[in-house]
């Protein structure tokens, strides 16, 4: 994995398909995808506020570096602090809702957030904020795509490893117990509300960092990047990678970015009338096809291949954290 990332500036443009910009975005989207995997895949909380927490991080960095000339590194931390506070306030009422009512309520939050980004005077409205200060280490400015790709992926790898450890640890087991049954979980001494709250805050932190990185990378923040459909896009990536797979996230992200690039390139020649609007259809089709035929995502497919290749039969549930177990939830 480290080698794959280290050589990214070489192989990614060599595909003639994806650019290094896609590589940087993939690192950022991996952070966002991880937040959804923790929330939806492992804890069973269909919370769809990613665009808001991501936007909060991005706008915090943009506003504080442009208006107040603060150091961008510092603004990442401030963004995280704001997001933690926001998540705590939001979690108190919302996380008491069950299943799809949580989904609908959080979607409401997502829409309110988007409206506020568009309307609040402090965000620059639909025009957004330009001229975000790039990050720098000492006198070395991180502004080239290559440098930023490394930075984004170092953060993404740390987050991947962190989440991996989290899942196999005490909190991770508590999360999965809650997903199975909150009543059963509380009967063995887990406090479901506290665990859900921690996951919610953690997800907000991940997407806040992603938002701040995005703001310093593009140097420009506008509401279009934080619409509800962006949350849906990340959801599609996570479903493709495998809702219950931490390492599936980067694969899902790259798969969708590649699909997007392919549809942008070849779509118009296939369906001339559609022009560049085709990706949205592609996302929907991919989402449905994966949920119908491969609900465990690429991760479960890889696992199945690996098992048939090595011939190690074993019980199917030998690795409960990966695989098509999403379909087993019956609540």
């Amino acid at each position: 994995m480290v080698i794959v990332v280290a050589t990214m500036p070489i192989w990614l443009p060599a595909t003639n398909f994806l650019t290094l910009t896609d590589g940087v975005l993939a690192g950022i989207y991996t952070l966002l995808g991880l937040s959804l995997v923790l929330l939806i895949g492992y804890t069973g909380q269909l919370a769809l506020t990613v665009n808001v927490t991501y936007g909060l991080g991005a706008y915090t960095t943009a506003i504080l570096t442009v208006d107040d000339k603060l150091n961008p590194w510092l603004t990442i931390l401030i963004g995280v602090a704001i997001n933690v506070a926001f998540a705590l306030v939001l979690a108190l009422p919302l996380l008491r809702l069950q299943g799809h009512f949580l989904a609908v309520a959080t979607l409401g939050v997502a829409l309110i957030g988007f409206t506020v980004f568009q309307a609040a005077p402090i965000t620059g409205g639909p025009n957004g904020i330009d001229g975000v200060t790039p990050l720098s280490i000492g006198s070395l400015q991180i502004s080239s795509d290559t440098a930023f790709a490394y930075l984004a992926w170092i953060v993404a790898l740390l987050a991947l490893i962190g989440c991996r450890n989290l899942i196999s640890g005490r909190l991770g087991r508590a999360m999965q117990a809650i997903k199975g049954s909150e009543a059963a979980a509380s009967s063995v001494g887990i406090r479901p509300f506290r665990v859900k709250m921690m996951v919610f805050v953690l997800a907000a932190v991940l997407s806040s960092v992603a938002g701040s990185l995005y703001a310093t990378y593009t140097g420009f923040v506008s509401p279009d990047a934080f619409s509800v459909s962006f949350t849906i896009t990340i959801l599609v990536m996570v479903v493709v990678g495998g809702l219950r797979s931490v390492w599936g996230v980067p694969f899902g992200v790259f798969a969708i970015l590649a699909l997007n690039a392919a549809l942008q390139t070849y779509g118009p020649s296939l369906i001339p009338a559609g022009g560049t609007d085709i990706p949205i259809v592609g996302y929907g089709v991919v989402l449905i096809v994966f949920l119908m035929f491969l609900p465990g995502g690429l991760a479960s497919a890889a696992q199945r291949l690996w098992r048939s290749a090595t011939g190690s039969g074993g019980p199917r549930r030998s690795m409960p954290e990966i695989g098509g177990a999403v379909s087993e939830e019956s609540s």
Binding site: I280, V281, Y283, G284, V285
Partner: peptide
């Protein structure tokens, strides 16, 4: 289960909107 089915209807929504958009 309801959560997965809900995400599937999101997929249906994307496809319908996408087709009309095209």
């Amino acid at each position: 289960g309801p959560v997965l089915l809900l995400i599937m209807t999101v997929g249906i929504s994307l496809v319908l909107e996408g087709v009309v958009l095209v």
